[in-house]
């Protein structure tokens, strides 16, 4: 721990708390989940970085979107994301959420996930190795430090646009808006 850490802890203890205890939602959204069990068990041990899986989204602040997102999963992802308390961070894992990856011409997978929910960082590759998860976590620390992991703020700000995109793909959502949407 360098000298600055202590100052940071005194200045913004809550932020440092969020940063070093990232609790990930346990949600297997795609095939990227295959590298998550090795990462959280003895050999790679993500707990060194403060990353732990949690059972419910209500207690989580990190959402790892592991792999391709089909239209049906998108509904579950939005619901899970909206249930998480703020501040919350999302990381897209693998090439598929970025731009569709190798399913670029599939009729049932989402091509750009950041058009439906805000994403703070991406891990490219198919499959990214466990080390890549840890690199992403340390990058996320830097972003949190600089207040640049602001996905949840962008979600508030552009909620109307996100909601419009979500409704377009899912043909109407069966739950009320999370934030008030002004009539335009």
């Amino acid at each position: 721990m360098d000298r600055n850490q202590l100052v940071k802890w005194l200045k913004a203890p809550a932020k440092m708390g969020h940063k070093y205890s990232l609790h990930a939602v346990y949600f297997c959204t795609g095939c990227g989940i295959i590298e998550v069990p090795p990462s959280i068990t003895a050999r790679w041990d993500a707990e060194r970085f403060g990353v732990l899986p949690t059972a419910t989204p209500r207690q989580a602040n990190l959402f790892l979107i592991t792999g391709y997102v089909s239209v049906k999963t998108l509904r579950a992802i939005i619901r899970t994301y909206e249930q998480m308390p703020e501040p919350k961070y999302t990381v897209g894992f693998g090439s598929c959420p970025i731009n569709g990856g190798m399913y670029w011409d599939s009729y049932n997978t989402i091509k750009h996930l950041d058009r439906y929910i805000p994403i703070d960082g991406w891990i490219a590759g198919c499959m990214p190795r466990p080390e890549a998860i840890f690199v992403a976590v340390t990058h996320l620390w830097t972003l949190i430090d600089k207040d640049m992991a602001d996905g949840y703020k962008r979600y508030r700000k552009h909620y109307a646009a996100y909601r419009a995109n979500q409704e377009k793909v899912l043909r109407g959502l069966d739950w009320p808006p999370l934030f008030p949407v002004e009539e335009q």
């Binding site: 795609g30 095939c31 391709y68 089909s70 049906k72 999963t73 579950a76 399913y103 011409d105 599939s106 009729y107 049932n108 997978t109």
Partner: peptide, 10 residues
């Protein structure tokens, strides 16, 4: 159906 990608079509 949460993981349907339409492999056989692709």
């Amino acid at each position: 159906g949460y993981l349907h990608r339409g492999f056989e079509k692709l």
